[in-house]
Write a protein that binds this DNA or RNA. Structure first.
Lengths: 119, 119, 119, 119
DNA sequence: GTGGTCTAGACCACC
DNA sequence: GTGGTCTAGACCACA
């Protein structure tokens, strides 16, 4: 498990986003128990407080919920999972348009090129 | 000017790619003189030898050519520039499909979502 | 059993009010023996004199009566209990209107909102 | 300006709620500048970090927004203000029902008593 | 100066 | 052990 950090944004949203993607990808399946705050923090090499914040964000997005004693469980709410998947997809799409724009392609051309590549 | 490095690949192709994107974006205009190897190396914080390899790659792609006295000049060959732009665009497209695949969307769905977002 | 103290008023009416609410709630049933002044004072962390005043107030309200030998007994006078219940209820109602007023709702609107929430 | 703290809940939601009520009550009018994090923290006698958290919550509720350099401004979005007012009102209503329940009145009777007191 | 982030470390409730 | 809160203090970007 590796953590890609530091793209200029604060660390905690990056951590939160990566956790979200892992959950969406099924790496942490619905209903499963997430590693503890301290474990995740040690793994990512950040302060437990920072990881705590990332997990709070995850919770607020409805992707996980804390059981004071049992650790943190991934939600089984498929609607919440689907919403998160869409949210992440839109982030990917946005960065796609940005990258293509840097290469001199407007949004319309960016869509066309993708369609060509697909066929 | 900042350099984003280390995504797992060797450093010199990354340098080469970023230089290519700057040329494509017009940051280094056709016919203009590139900074010296030493300058670029210092700026990127890498060994001049590494930067040399990156520039050689650039030359090999037809984006620049060495001039014994004037240093290294950006090509004025618009066809070569266009080819490079397309090459980079395809790399962007590939990583788009990969990112969407990680979120559970196949290529068809990935294209559809992009089109929706575009409209 | 915990004691919520210090809302600005003197301590003894607060103690008295909480004892009254316990009696009304049936926590100290009619006819039962109240804990001794010393016990109650120790539990609440106040001076026995202060608790004494609270209990005197309780007696004055007809909720308890001192028995030379048996300590202090909760009244069995249901009318007195009912009167006390109503008195406390009116205090709750008053603070409800005050809180809603602070939020910008007049008494009429405060009643309406409560009815809506009830349904 | 006084701060009522410690009802068992964490401090930061209490701070956040009191700030919200002040905004709703017009004590901090729409568009006005809130005191700085450090000022508010000193005033409330808490760590700036804790107050920061309370303010972040306020922001997330749409009641304020941060201007990195200009401080924090109360929203002018009347819809957000109205939503917050309703949220707070429901909290007041809930605690009303709880208090009446402790006195032995069910929700229906609690509504009736309020209506009687109103007339 | 402002808001915001991050770390370090202590402490609590829960079971 | 778990999640969560709070403090203390450093640091950054912005203007």
């Amino acid at each position: 498990m590796d953590w890609k950090l530091d793209d200029g944004r604060p660390i905690w949203p990056q951590l939160s986003q990566q956790l979200a993607r892992r959950i969406i990808a099924g790496e942490y399946p619905p209903g499963s128990r997430l590693p503890s705050v301290r474990e995740l923090a040690a793994e990512a090499g950040v302060n437990p407080n920072t990881m705590q914040r990332a997990l709070a964000q995850l919770e607020q997005e409805g992707l996980a919920r804390a059981d004071r004693t049992a650790g943190r469980l991934v939600t089984q709410d498929t609607a919440a999972l689907e919403a998160a998947r869409l949210r992440e997809a839109q982030a990917v799409i946005r960065s796609y348009f940005e990258a293509m724009s840097a290469l001199g392609y407007d949004r319309e051309r960016a869509v066309e090129l993708l369609k060509e590549e697909f066929q």
